[in-house]
Design a protein around this nucleic acid. Structure first.
Length: 487
DNA sequence: AGCCGCGTTGTGGGT
DNA sequence: AACCCACAACGCGGC
């Protein structure tokens, strides 16, 4: 007669197969290929248990600077996700601790058959995922990951660009245009178990986090304008999509102050990916105020700055001319000073467009042909040879003949007297000699561009160039392929 | 969405 | 008719 001992029975129940879907960023049921893959796996494993998990990295909670509102957004999102999962006969299991330890525990105790997740390209996530992947590999457990956080697989785009991130807008467009159509979105998961759900062995464990647990100082919470969660997000999306005028005008953001929050991915603060060239700009309050107040002695520049100050709008090429003059062209003052003046004076100032355009024009980012220097004398002549624009905004110079109006300091004294405007008395002499200073500045730009940026920290996961053989998925073991892309 | 100097080519008037 | 010459227009490379 065989003895049945309770321990053995417990052991038997632990043998129930488990499929893990690891939620990280994509806290949603719709358009979630990794969740779909997890659910599909259940078909081949009768009575298997799905564990949708979220790991609260407690060390991160203690050290990562996240505001109260953002923590609340996460708590909201997880609660909404849990609610949706419960309606499908499952739930969210919130594990606590470092992800590697949590997976060690799970792999040891849950008879895991498959782990699925959505890829995350942030450095912290890549390092974490590589470690978890190794653990799973050692345990002989299959892992499936999917690119669904971004429209395209970043690795594929990188490969198309020789494994380098595009740093100009044109390059970015080129790369995307060769990538073809992004994959179609996936329908929401609406069913998990075909039969009645297996019993939850951890009914009272792995509960949702609370604000208190996350040390949220509730006095720092702002009004609850944007609750987190898939349900609320879809509601807002649906609502926006009914506003046809808003949508059709969205490409012209200058008409709409209430735009959707911009993505911050392009301006990542990661110090290893510094986008902005670090240039040794001068601090020169005299030059700065002369520029801002339209008394540089260059009529074309001063006329533009006068129009800006008086009327609040200047043509975009005029913006180019004065931005170049302030920064790399002549005065060698930081674009951030110019940004502040434009922000103060431009009726159409948009903080992101303004900052981006100043970086562009100063050749600090996106645009790098720094030897393309606008002349404060000849640039305006091409479209206004008689200087009518200058006459309008600088009436002191209105009587200068066309051949002197762009550089009145070259006019003979007789001409200056006849025009009723003595240079150096009635209108300033040029504060810099453009012909000389722009050459000096070219050398300074040259030096700034030659300066090697500080090397990336060691151990930072880095995209490496994949060899041609790796393109054939079937010939390369999954783990090797994964490492070649993520380690 | 630069500017300059240089060389080449084209043009028109004059000898 | 053939040639000279000044000048404009254009393309290119370097910064």
């Amino acid at each position: 007669m065989r003895k049945i001992n309770p321990q053995g029975r417990a052991q038997m129940s632990q043998k129930q197969a488990t499929v893990i879907h690891w939620f990280r960023k994509g806290l949603r049921l719709h358009d979630n290929p990794a969740l779909i893959a997890a659910v599909e796996k259940l078909d081949t494993l009768p009575s298997a248990h799905l564990r949708p998990i979220f790991i609260l990295d407690t060390k991160l909670v203690e050290t990562y600077r996240v505001g109260a509102n953002r923590w609340r957004f996460l708590v909201d999102s997880l609660a909404d996700l849990d609610k949706s999962l419960r309606s499908l006969g499952t739930r969210l299991y919130v594990l606590r601790g470092d992800p590697v330890s949590q997976f060690k525990f799970a792999l040891k105790n849950w008879n895991v058959k498959l782990i699925t997740y959505e890829t995350d390209t942030e450095p912290y996530a890549r390092k974490r995922d590589v470690e978890v992947f190794k653990l799973a590999e050692e345990a002989g457990v299959e892992v499936k990951y999917f690119f669904s956080h971004t429209l395209y697989e970043p690795i594929v785009l990188l490969r198309q660009n020789k494994s380098e991130a595009p740093k100009t807008y044109q390059k970015f467009l080129d790369v995307v245009s060769k990538a073809g159509e992004p994959p179609a979105s996936k329908v929401a998961v609406t069913e998990v178990y075909k039969q009645s759900p297996p019993k939850d062995p951890d009914k009272d464990k792995y509960q949702l986090p609370t604000l208190r647990e996350l040390h949220v100082d509730e006095s720092k919470l702002g009004p609850h304008l944007y609750p987190g969660g898939e349900t609320e997000a879809l509601r807002r999306l649906t609502q926006v999509m009914t506003r046809k005028t808003y949508i059709s005008n969205f490409e012209k953001p200058n008409t709409s102050p209430n735009s959707i929050e911009p993505s911050t991915t392009v301006l990542s603060p990661d110090p290893n990916l510094l986008i902005c060239k670090q240039i040794d700009w001068d601090v020169n309050p005299e030059y700065l105020s002369a520029w801002a107040e339209g008394r540089t002695g260059y009529p074309f520049i001063d006329a533009i700055m006068t129009q800006l100050r008086k009327e609040g709008w200047i043509h975009h090429l005029a913006r180019h001319a004065v931005a170049c003059f302030l920064t790399r062209g002549d005065l060698w003052i930081s674009w951030e000073e110019g940004q502040l003046v434009f922000e103060e004076l431009l009726l159409d100032a948009d903080v992101y467009l303004n900052a981006g355009n100043w970086m562009w024009l100063s050749a600090s980012a996106f645009f790098h042909q720094y030897y393309r220097v606008y002349s404060p004398i000849v640039f305006g002549k091409k479209t206004d040879p008689h200087g009518e624009y200058i006459r309008k905004y600088l009436p002191k110079l209105a009587k200068y003949p066309p051949n002197y109006i762009y550089e009145p300091w070259t006019a003979p004294m007789s001409v200056q007297k006849a025009a009723g405007c003595i240079i150096g008395t009635d209108y300033p002499k040029p504060i810099v000699d453009h012909a000389k200073i722009h050459k000096v500045n070219l050398q300074r730009m040259n030096a700034a561009y030659k300066k090697v940026p500080s090397p990336p920290k060691k151990n930072t996961p880095k995209f490496t160039r994949a060899s041609r053989e790796d393109d054939d998925d079937s010939s390369v073991p999954f783990a090797k392929k994964f490492r070649s892309e993520f380690c």
